[in-house]
Simulated assay, not measured.
Amino acid sequence: MKRAYNFNAGPAALPLEVLKKAQEEWLDFNGTGMNVMELSHRSKDYEAVHNKAIALLRKLLSISDDYEILFLQGGASTQFSMIPMNLLNKDKVGHYVLTGSWSEKALKEAKKVGQTAVLASGKENNYQTIPTLDKIELQDDAAYLHITSNNTIFGTQWKTFPEVSGAPLIADMSSDILCKPIDVNKFGLIYAGAQKNLGPSGVTVVIIRKDLIGQAPEAIPTMLDYKTHSGNNSLYNTPPTLAIYLLSLVLEHVDSLGGLSVMEKMNEEKANVLYDVIDGSNGFYKGHATPDSRSTMNVTFTLQSDEATAAFLAQAKELGFIGLAGHRSVGGCRASIYNAVPLEHVQKLAEFMKSFQSSY
């Protein structure tokens, strides 16, 4: 069977080694005679999977004991509401930096809960660049500062994170968590839907500083209170066991490769392959993001006309390239090259881009 050249934005490619390991254990996990998704979430066999995933996340991201790691459901979109419901108390203000569609959606949900303010925005230039923010001193009424670390639709990414004082920094890292080492201690809360770099869809990882847990008002629904999940090791109700199992295999795979410093080098190499083609095309391909804000996860670009774009996408599909159509708000094309996308597939895409330009 020939594997597709999978450049989907999410759900996205999973490491082939992970898929093979899951296939081997599909009918009989750990001698149980059952698939992982058939196990009781209260069983010792599943508990070992659950705790291994937590331990590997702590190791790979160097997460201290000052933080809880939660496995939740509802995707990052539920966190857009859950964060303000827990942290945006009366007379406080939730601050947001707008760098794309997902940060806009996060702000929209927070407005339903309490007071908000936009600290900075790149909307005027159609989110081509990340605002320059170095040191930020928030006022006493600030509840938090929220950013989106990588913007899948626009192909931009924070290269360095701002130093924030006065309130915790919160980041939606759904599309670039595990792509490089980060200093978790800079953040009060990090959240990420798994379906891009962590594993399959269905589980959302929340890394939250312990002092931020327990601040929710009493009226908050039980399942939307971080305290509910932190007090039960994310097992208050039935978790997405299969997704967490696959997440643990992905983490094991990343660890076996050498961790996040190795992933960073691999991701930079893949991104450079495509950006070199774009920059060397004499304008045939035009990148959406400014060079200083370019994402290593999502390479967005346009061609010279809608006709050229349609021909490019049609030929790409015939050759087995999947998921290259850009989002309607940007147009053109997008290659999502998350951790699990092999360098060889990126090189194949670069070769196709060059050949298409020469023949069109």
Rank of each mutant, 00 (worst) to 15 (best):
G287S: 13
K112V: 08
A350P: 01
D141C: 05
N125R: 13
P15K: 06
D211W: 04
Q73M: 13
L16I: 14
Y46M: 01
F352I: 11
G287E: 07
S305W: 07
K44Y: 08
S256P: 01
A9I: 11
I130W: 03
R209H: 11
K52P: 00
Y275H: 00
K159M: 06
R294N: 02
L303Y: 05
G155C: 10
S261A: 14
V113N: 03
E307F: 11
A171Y: 06
Q128K: 15
L133G: 00
E318F: 00
A325F: 07
E218W: 02
K286N: 14
E124G: 01
L107R: 06
S230N: 11
S293G: 07
Q115A: 12
I207Y: 02
L274R: 03
D45M: 08
Q347P: 04
Y144H: 01
W158F: 11
T238P: 11
M297L: 09
D255S: 10
L87A: 03
L88M: 02
P342R: 10
S261N: 15
T156W: 00
H95C: 00
Q347D: 07
E351Y: 09
I208S: 00
L27P: 07
L242S: 11
L260G: 05
N8K: 13
W26P: 10
Y144K: 03
F284T: 06
S149T: 12
E68T: 03
E318H: 08
S329E: 15
N185S: 15
T241M: 13
P162I: 10
M85R: 11
K348I: 08
I130V: 14
H41W: 15
M353Y: 02
N237H: 15
H146Y: 15
D141A: 08
